[in-house]
């Protein structure tokens, strides 16, 4: 499988402080890789450098196609409806606006909320709209960059979104996801990159996707605090 995401020695400094340093890894089509670390470890910085939202001070990053990105703490326009927003985003990418309806349905947002203004939607529903955006599109082996995708979702919602992401992965998407929720990460990902102090300390390959693996990762992270 070809590399969809290729990162070589990526680094970002704020003044003298390196928020990210020497990050090197690849993500192939049909693979899910997790970024795990404490707050301020450099997970979001890495994703934003990859997308060009932050200018990297060293190294390079390459994405094989335009990514679908789910930012952390994004506020959607309150006066618009989920369907309006997704249709508009789809048009901007040159996709059929019908993609939006299909994606909202897949993301599990009840049809009665499709036409309601975002201000009437709960936090979980808003998150589903963003997840739906990541499901839009026709290209199968595209990069999906997800920054805390489970934020605001209840247990059932998280399970549903995990299922959707699994399906995307099986269809060939290359997923790079950051999250604090270790069990979710273990269930979805093939590999986890453990980040601390802006550096990738360790790469852990997950084989069992079990609770025991999640606990071992949590212990390892705690030992670095």
């Amino acid at each position: 499988m070809a590399d969809v995401i290729h990162v070589q020695g990526l680094g970002k400094a704020y003044g003298r402080h390196w928020a990210l340093r020497h990050a090197t890894f690849t993500v192939r089509a049909g693979e899910a890789v997790g970024l795990l670390g404490a707050n301020g470890a450099g997970k979001s910085t890495l994703i934003k450098c990859l997308l060009g939202l932050l200018r990297a001070d060293e190294g390079q990053a390459r994405l094989r196609a335009h990514p679908s990105y789910l930012p952390e703490q994004l506020q959607l326009p309150e006066s618009l409806t989920p369907l309006d927003i997704l249709r508009c985003l789809c048009r901007a990418r040159g996709w059929s606006p019908r993609c939006a309806e299909h994606a909202l349905h897949e993301a599990g947002l009840a049809r009665r909320y499709w036409g309601k203004a975002i201000r009437h939607c709960s936090k979980g529903m808003r998150q589903r709209v963003l997840v739906a955006w990541c499901l839009c599109g026709e290209q199968r082996d595209r990069p999906l960059l997800l920054d805390e995708p489970m934020s605001g979702l209840d247990a059932l919602g998280r399970a549903e979104v995990l299922g959707l992401l699994q399906r995307q992965r099986h269809n060939g998407a290359a997923i790079l996801m950051s999250s604090h929720i270790v069990p979710d990460m273990v269930r979805l990902c093939d590999r986890v990159l453990l980040i601390s102090g802006g550096r990738i300390r360790e790469e852990v390959r997950l084989s069992e996707h079990s609770l025991a693996e999640a606990e071992a990762l949590e212990r390892k992270l705690a030992s670095w605090q």
Binding site: K48, G52, S68, Y69, P71, Q73, L74, A92, R93, L145
Partner: peptide
């Protein structure tokens, strides 16, 4: 200002734009 503060511009800037 909202676009910049609340990161909606991030979605647009990851497109071919």
């Amino acid at each position: 200002s909202r676009d910049l503060d609340q990161r909606l511009c991030h979605l647009w800037l990851t497109m071919p734009l």
